[in-house]
């Protein structure tokens, strides 16, 4: 597990698929840690990359930018970035930003694996 002041990241192995599970606030201070984790996946051209946001309490534009960067890095190899278990408060931020048109979103990790 890697941690910083406002966020922790746990990697969960779900039936052989690694799921990135951050918890806490993803903001300008903590997003570099998440970026490092996501980039380590995209460098290996892993697809899909699943991020579970169940324990995330807040995400700002720096956090969203981190996902956007990962998505753009995955585009050349047709990789899929899947976001699962999105709490209502985070979904509201995503809806405000119309990010449902950008990211593949799933209710559960299992749905993300199947989808």
């Amino acid at each position: 597990m890697v941690t910083c002041t406002s966020m922790k990241i746990e990697l969960i192995n779900r039936n052989g698929v690694v799921v990135i599970s951050p918890s806490g606030e993803i903001d300008m201070y903590s997003s570099p840690l998440l970026r490092k984790e996501l980039i380590s996946f995209t460098k290996k051209k892993i697809s899909p990359v699943i991020v579970a946001l169940r324990d995330v309490t807040y995400i700002d534009s720096s956090g969203i930018a981190t996902f956007v960067e990962a998505l753009k890095r995955m585009m050349p190899y047709n990789g899929k970035l899947k976001i699962a278990e999105i709490p209502e408060s985070i979904m509201k931020i995503f809806n405000f930003s119309k990010l449902d048109k950008v990211f593949d979103m799933y209710e559960s990790i299992d749905d993300a694996i199947k989808g």
């Binding site: 956007v68 930003s97 119309k98 048109k101 950008v102």
Partner: peptide, 11 residues
């Protein structure tokens, strides 16, 4: 009704 932020995808 809107689109996604600018600079991400072609839309």
């Amino acid at each position: 009704q809107g689109g996604p932020p600018l600079g991400i995808i072609n839309t």
